[in-house]
Measured scan of single mutants.
Amino acid sequence: MQRVNMIMAESPGLITICLLGYLLSAECTVFLDHENANKILNRPKRYNSGKLEEFVQGNLERECMEEKCSFEEAREVFENTERTTEFWKQYVDGDQCESNPCLNGGSCKDDINSYECWCPFGFEGKNCELDVTCNIKNGRCEQFCKNSADNKVVCSCTEGYRLAENQKSCEPAVPFPCGRVSVSQTSKLTRAETVFPDVDYVNSTEAETILDNITQSTQSFNDFTRVVGGEDAKPGQFPWQVVLNGKVDAFCGGSIVNEKWIVTAAHCVETGVKITVVAGEHNIEETEHTEQKRNVIRIIPHHNYNAAINKYNHDIALLELDEPLVLNSYVTPICIADKEYTNIFLKFGSGYVSGWGRVFHKGRSALVLQYLRVPLVDRATCLRSTKFTIYNNMFCAGFHEGGRDSCQGDSGGPHVTEVEGTSFLTGIISWGEECAMKGKYGIYTKVSRYVNWIKEKTKLT
């Protein structure tokens, strides 16, 4: 034993070699072989497995989906700052455009905790909710729209109204504003409101030439003092309507412009014939205590009207009353817009006519005020429907199939267009061939041609 100890002390290297040989010859039971080890760690190889990531292109799944990435790591994937920024906006807080917040056709661009709407022409605001041009839906104005110097929408209202708090709607500024039905039992019968379409306001006024200088022999019209197929109006439903009495009662109609003036057809009036105007009328054979009678003290036909040349060209006249009318729910003026808007309103496509005229061709006159909704007829169809001249200051309205029309005794009465609950004068009943005849239409004086003249002559002093 002493000898062994001496050998170990003198030859430590020998001992180490012996131990190493023993270990190498022993069977290893701690580690699995290569094949079995792979069965336990069965993990798919990654895209760049075996390579240094710093030297390969980034992978979106590896960089940002398996674990949260930084902007720089995302930049490695896209290799483009702009594309990385677009991805980053949604990656950080989701897609803010998912709810489609942009209105009126706006395009949404996502941002971090926010979004941006790219608005089409005519709109602005956070969600493109603000109209900035009158060309689109009248700028959301209830009545009139004008573009300011910086191309912003400025709404306005006709006389007797003021802008509401929203700067879009119009509200009454006087007790009985024009064009409004205020009798409670008839307010439910107000005709369907007309909503502004998209309009090209630059070209809204037709490029028409008034044929002022045409000389033409007097034409022989049949029954051209021209509501057939209409309905009984309720008291106060058309408070701007008046009836004219002269040699015979209810020979023509008219509309209240203001307390002192009536507008009617020029062919209705004769110099030297006494005319009485009755406002607030409903049943011409009954006294309903809503009527107001006034005498006409002055007749002003349009300066281009000449019955000797043509009885229905420039067929418009103004009547001055001896005493002002007292405005109330049964006696209310009709609204008159400017030339541009009167023309736009007419193009809405349908209007209402009213009167006490004959209820059928050569038949009896109506006792109760009649009204009828009539569609506008395109000019080409209008011209083809008659052998008589249709001037540019006239328009056609009615039904091709016949059966409904204005008729004798309705002449001078109103053709009105309702705009968001307020009625505007767009025409004056003038003439036609018979009444409600198939293929024939009622012919009306186009008020847009005469609004400046009306307003100039009827100013209240």
Rank of each mutant, 00 (worst) to 15 (best):
Q2D: 07
R3M: 12
R3T: 07
V4P: 08
N5K: 14
M6S: 11
M6N: 10
M8L: 11
A9D: 05
A9C: 13
E10K: 15
S11H: 12
P12V: 14
P12F: 15
G13H: 07
L14H: 03
I17Y: 12
L19M: 07
L20D: 02
L20I: 07
G21H: 06
Y22Q: 08
L23E: 03
L24I: 07
S25N: 10
S25G: 09
A26M: 05
C28A: 11
F31N: 15
L32K: 15
L32F: 10
H34T: 13
E35K: 08
E35T: 13
K39W: 13
I40G: 15
N42T: 13
R43I: 10
R46E: 15
N48V: 07
N48C: 04
G50W: 06
K51Y: 07
L52N: 15
L52G: 08
E53V: 09
E53F: 05
E53T: 10
F55N: 15
G58P: 15
N59S: 13
E61L: 11
E61M: 15
R62W: 03
M65K: 15
E66Y: 04
E66F: 04
E67T: 05
K68I: 09
S70V: 09
S70F: 07
F71Q: 15
E72F: 15
R75Q: 09
V77R: 14
E79Q: 14
N80G: 15
T81G: 14
E82F: 04
R83L: 11
R83N: 15
T84Y: 04
T85K: 06
E86L: 15
E86N: 15
E86I: 15
F87W: 15
Q90T: 08
Q90N: 14
G94W: 05
G94Y: 06
Q96M: 06
S99G: 06
S99F: 05
N100T: 09
P101A: 02
P101K: 03
L103M: 13
L103Y: 07
N104C: 00
D110T: 06
D110V: 05
I112L: 11
N113C: 03
N113Y: 05
Y115C: 02
E116R: 04
E116N: 10
C117H: 00
W118V: 15
W118F: 09
P120M: 06
F121A: 12
G122C: 00
G122Y: 03
E124N: 05
G125W: 00
N127K: 05
C128D: 01
C128I: 02
C128S: 00
D131F: 12
T133P: 04
C134N: 02
I136L: 07
K137E: 08
N138Y: 04
N138V: 03
R140I: 04
C141I: 00
E142L: 04
E142G: 07
Q143F: 03
F144P: 00
F144W: 02
F144E: 00
C145E: 02
C145W: 01
K146S: 07
N147Q: 13
N147R: 06
N147L: 13
A149C: 06
A149W: 06
D150H: 09
D150A: 09
N151Y: 12
K152F: 08
S156A: 09
C157Q: 00
E159D: 11
Y161V: 01
Y161K: 00
Y161E: 00
L163E: 02
A164W: 03
A164M: 10
E165Q: 11
Q167H: 11
C170L: 02
C170A: 01
C170K: 02
E171T: 08
V174S: 09
P177L: 00
C178N: 01
G179Y: 01
G179H: 01
V181Q: 11
V183A: 13
S184F: 13
S184R: 09
T186N: 11
T186H: 11
S187Q: 10
S187C: 05
K188A: 13
K188T: 06
R191T: 09
T194N: 06
D198Q: 13
Y201V: 13
A207T: 12
E208S: 12
T209C: 06
L211G: 12
N213H: 08
N213W: 05
I214H: 07
I214F: 07
Q216N: 09
Q216R: 06
Q216T: 11
S217P: 12
T218P: 12
T218N: 13
S220G: 10
S220P: 13
F221L: 12
F224A: 14
V228P: 06
V228M: 06
G230N: 11
E231T: 14
E231S: 08
D232R: 13
F238I: 06
F238K: 03
P239H: 01
P239W: 01
P239E: 00
W240P: 00
Q241I: 11
Q241G: 06
V242I: 05
V242Q: 00
V243D: 01
L244T: 02
K247H: 09
K247M: 10
D249M: 10
D249H: 10
D249A: 09
D249L: 08
A250Q: 11
F251D: 03
C252K: 00
G254T: 00
G254K: 00
S255A: 05
S255K: 00
S255M: 03
V257S: 00
K260L: 09
W261H: 02
W261D: 01
I262D: 01
T264Q: 00
T264W: 01
T264A: 05
A265N: 03
A265P: 03
A266N: 02
A266M: 04
T271H: 13
V273G: 09
K274M: 08
T276M: 07
V278H: 05
V278P: 00
A279P: 00
I284R: 13
E288L: 06
T290D: 04
N295T: 10
N295W: 04
I299M: 11
I300D: 02
P301Y: 10
H302T: 02
N304I: 03
I309Y: 06
K311L: 08
Y312E: 02
H314S: 04
D315Q: 02
A317T: 03
L318Q: 00
L319G: 02
L319H: 01
E320M: 05
L321F: 01
P324N: 05
P324C: 03
P324H: 04
L325V: 03
L327F: 14
S329A: 10
S329T: 14
S329Y: 06
I334Q: 01
C335N: 01
I336T: 03
A337P: 03
E340C: 03
N343A: 07
I344W: 07
I344T: 10
L346N: 03
G349L: 03
S350N: 13
S350Y: 07
S350D: 08
Y352K: 02
Y352D: 03
Y352V: 09
V353W: 03
V353H: 04
G355H: 13
G355Y: 15
W356P: 04
G357L: 07
G357N: 07
G357E: 13
G357Q: 14
K362R: 12
G363M: 08
R364G: 09
S365T: 14
S365E: 15
A366H: 12
L367P: 12
L367E: 14
V368I: 11
L369E: 06
L369T: 13
L369D: 03
Q370N: 10
Y371T: 15
L372D: 11
L372F: 14
R373V: 07
R373H: 14
V374A: 11
P375K: 15
L376I: 12
D378S: 12
R379G: 05
A380L: 10
T381F: 13
T381R: 13
T381L: 09
C382R: 03
L383W: 13
R384D: 07
S385D: 12
T386E: 07
K387Y: 06
F388S: 13
T389K: 06
I390D: 08
N393Y: 05
F395H: 01
C396W: 01
A397V: 06
A397I: 02
G398E: 06
F399R: 05
H400Q: 13
E401H: 14
G402E: 15
D405N: 14
S406H: 12
D410W: 15
S411Q: 14
S411Y: 11
G412V: 06
G413S: 15
H415A: 02
T417N: 10
V419E: 02
E420M: 11
T422S: 04
S423I: 05
F424N: 00
L425W: 00
T426F: 00
I429K: 13
S430I: 12
S430L: 13
E433S: 14
E434Y: 12
C435T: 04
A436F: 08
A436W: 08
K438T: 13
G439F: 04
G439S: 14
Y441K: 02
I443W: 13
T445F: 03
T445Y: 04
T445K: 00
K446A: 08
V447G: 02
V447M: 07
S448H: 09
R449D: 10
Y450P: 01
W453K: 00
I454T: 00
I454Q: 00
K455F: 06
E456Y: 10
E456T: 11
K459T: 15
L460H: 12
T461L: 09
